[in-house]
């Protein structure tokens, strides 16, 4: 096997991994602040994918552009869900939250199945088969654009939590729920905003990924698990960790696909998860606590 093939595999793994990382960031934000494990995460991602597919098919809108309305739509949906339903479950035991989100996930994914059927669809962008050539390495244009979009959104998300007043207030809730309430923050309102942001982010990730893959409703559970793996590997609550974890999983999947056997690539991800859980449960970039 030639060196350029490895380089190509590696770089396409990194590019896809960045989009995975963005999806996992949404999960990480929600868990880090609201302390809810969003078992409907992959389902929301697939919702974003189908929105991109519909917009592309109906009006020929590029998924890179449809990411904006999809983000708005998912923000509203996520905000409403947290406000109307999930806020009541904040203090309930883990397994009850899990069942609630599982029910929501089932409704979402099978609702998509009812509307779109089980067949694979794609966004069919005009540059779908174009590529960049960088020093002997072939990079799919779609992958490069998707990864670029993921990096921009990740940077925006980081800036929001670092500099905006709302972002700082949300971090205060995450650090100390009681303290935040004492200084007069509307904790439940901020939770709703956080869930909205997490949903919007994963929706964007779905749009971006729809450039690269064929979209089917059945993918949802896989992406939920994938996001979990990335978040645990990278470290819960660490945004950089989510991106790093995403790249790591993207690369290991790509390499396993070439070196071992494509159908076994999932085993590598699960193996990595088991290893990290046992050796470094706080994740690669996570803080112990």
């Amino acid at each position: 096997m030639s060196l350029s093939l490895y380089a190509g595999t590696l770089s396409s793994g990194i590019l896809t991994g960045l989009v995975y990382g963005l999806a996992a960031m949404g999960l990480s934000v929600i868990f880090g602040v609201v302390r809810l494990v969003n078992f409907a995460h992959g389902e929301m991602m697939v919702l974003g994918m189908f929105a991109a597919v519909v917009l592309a098919a109906a009006w020929g809108i590029d998924p890179l552009l449809s990411a904006l309305p999809v983000a708005a739509l998912l923000f509203v949906a996520g905000y409403g869900l947290q406000r109307g339903l999930l806020n009541r479950f904040i203090d309930r035991p883990d397994h009850q939250q899990f069942i609630l989100l599982l029910g929501i996930a089932m409704i979402l994914v099978n609702g998509l199945m009812m509307v779109f059927g089980p067949d694979a669809r794609s966004t069919n962008v005009p540059y779908g088969f174009d590529a960049f050539f960088v020093g002997g390495i072939t990079l799919d244009k779609t992958r490069v654009y998707a990864a670029g979009g993921a990096l921009i959104v990740a940077a925006a998300l980081y800036a929001f939590f670092r500099f905006s007043r709302t972002g700082i207030a949300i971090r205060a809730c995450a650090d100390n729920q009681l303290g935040a309430a004492v200084v007069g923050l509307d904790v439940k309102g901020l939770y709703a905003i956080t869930f909205g942001i997490g949903s919007a982010v994963v929706g964007i990730a779905g749009c971006l990924l729809s450039l690269v893959i064929d979209v089917r409703p059945q993918l949802a559970a896989d992406y939920t698990l994938l996001s979990f793996i990335i978040v645990i590997v990278g470290g819960l609550g660490s945004m950089g960790g989510a991106l790093l974890g995403g790249v790591l999983i993207g690369v290991s999947e790509a390499l396993a696909g070439v070196l071992i056997d494509p159908s076994r690539k999932q085993m590598v991800s699960y193996g990595l998860l088991i290893l990290v859980l046992l050796v470094r449960p706080q994740g690669l970039l996570g803080k112990r606590g």
Binding site: M106, M113, M114
Partner: peptide
Amino acid sequence: TLPGTKQVIYGLMLVLIICFRP
């Protein structure tokens, strides 16, 4: 005969049960 209808009903039941009889 739409695929997924049964699971949607199932999901709704789960949400209702966990909301009202946790």
